[in-house]
Design a protein around this nucleic acid. Structure first.
Lengths: 203, 203
DNA sequence: CTTTTAATTCATCACCTGGTGAATTAGTGG
DNA sequence: CCACTAATTCACCAGGTGATGAATTAAAAG
């Protein structure tokens, strides 16, 4: 009695295992972080042989990078922001952030946050992304000494990262369930002060 | 020729392996997160047999909890804060946070942050600590409808968590290397606004 | 001094990890 | 139709994982 074996070889067209693997990876990395997720778990979640993961990606690191890298293009998300006058930029920034994080990229973004904060080795990745890809755009055209502009950027980042963490990762209520408009009204003034406000104590 | 074997049995007094294990655990959890750290690595770092870890702690979870739980007592740290008038509380809060995170508890705290943010399962722990142990004290005596006070507390948390992450975990410069006084002057106003300021849009 | 208790080491378990190489099958280009 | 390439499965490997139980030794308690 030959049991119905799983046939080897190429599937009949229409399968997209690669995408399934990426989706599964995003989901698991988002839930359990980088170290907490195994290739086999990913394969299982994607209903795929573990070896496929290696077929499509060189290893766990590349899988992480691919599944998580640019879950959204910063340039695109911040397109509008960059050319607004710095003095009224905050609201647009907060809105862009919220819209992005509430969209389809959420899984990938949370995965990125968890994986990247979870270990010293990967924190560098976060630092790079935040400062190069994001802050440079957010702070474009802000006047003042370089050092001061960098500090302002760091402060913007601190409030933004904190907001994201509280709302999407840690999920503090009622912040997590507040409306987008409320959040904008509540935190945009903080951001605006960091960008152009009088910080009165900057050496 | 009997090689000098490592003697079994109890060490001659003065050894404190338990403490060594906890210190090693704090260090490694801080660097590599919960999943990224193995019991054997901890044992190696502590120069101790792996089985000792099980002797002193039931398992990895208990080790994590013990090494990281209350790296500092919130009640103590926030002792002064609680009884200040809410309208001038912000500066004290920021100063307390910075002092705490720059003290000997830093390793444990970073470990807590990394381990706790790194996975969904452990995020609950962070939520509990933040809301019960910390926010309840920080927001003690603030007037207004419950829901609104909670929201204010969440906002305080968002800025505080963001500051900690940017300064101690991600290490964004120049924020990471700014003086304690500068940081206080820069972010205390934000916190103060969240505690007692006019948020003008609270439903 | 003797009994009890605690600290330490060792050998071992079953399992999971990331990774490799080959065999098998299907679609594709010529 | 045939050669080629890519997708898929399988059978492994060496090593690390958390965990357990027993043996050994010293300190503490009586």
């Amino acid at each position: 009695m030959s049991l119905p074996q799983i046939r080897r070889g190429r599937r009949s067209a229409g399968d997209h295992s690669r995408e399934a693997i990426l989706a599964a990876a995003r989901k698991l990395f988002a839930e359990k972080g980088f170290e907490g997720t195994s290739l086999r778990q990913v394969a299982r979640e994607a209903a795929v042989d573990p070896a496929m993961v290696h077929h499509f990606f060189k290893g766990k690191d590349e899988l992480f990078a691919s599944s998580v890298e640019l879950p959204a293009d910063p340039a695109e998300v911040l397109a509008g922001v960059e050319m607004m006058d710095p003095s009224v930029r905050a609201e647009a920034i907060v809105r862009a952030v919220l819209t992005l994080w509430e969209g389809p990229a959420q899984h990938g973004l949370v995965a990125f946050a968890r994986g990247t904060i979870g270990s010293k080795a990967k924190s560098g990745m976060m630092r790079e992304v935040v400062s190069r890809a994001i802050l440079s755009r957010v702070m474009a055209g802000v006047s003042g000494p370089d050092e001061q502009v960098l500090l302002r950027g760091n402060l913007v980042a601190s409030q933004t990262v904190g907001l994201i963490l509280a709302r999407y990762v840690i999920r503090l209520d009622p912040l997590a369930s507040a409306s987008q408009d409320d959040v904008v009204r509540l935190v945009a003034p903080t951001i605006q002060r960091y960008i152009t406000g009088d910080l009165d104590s900057l050496k």
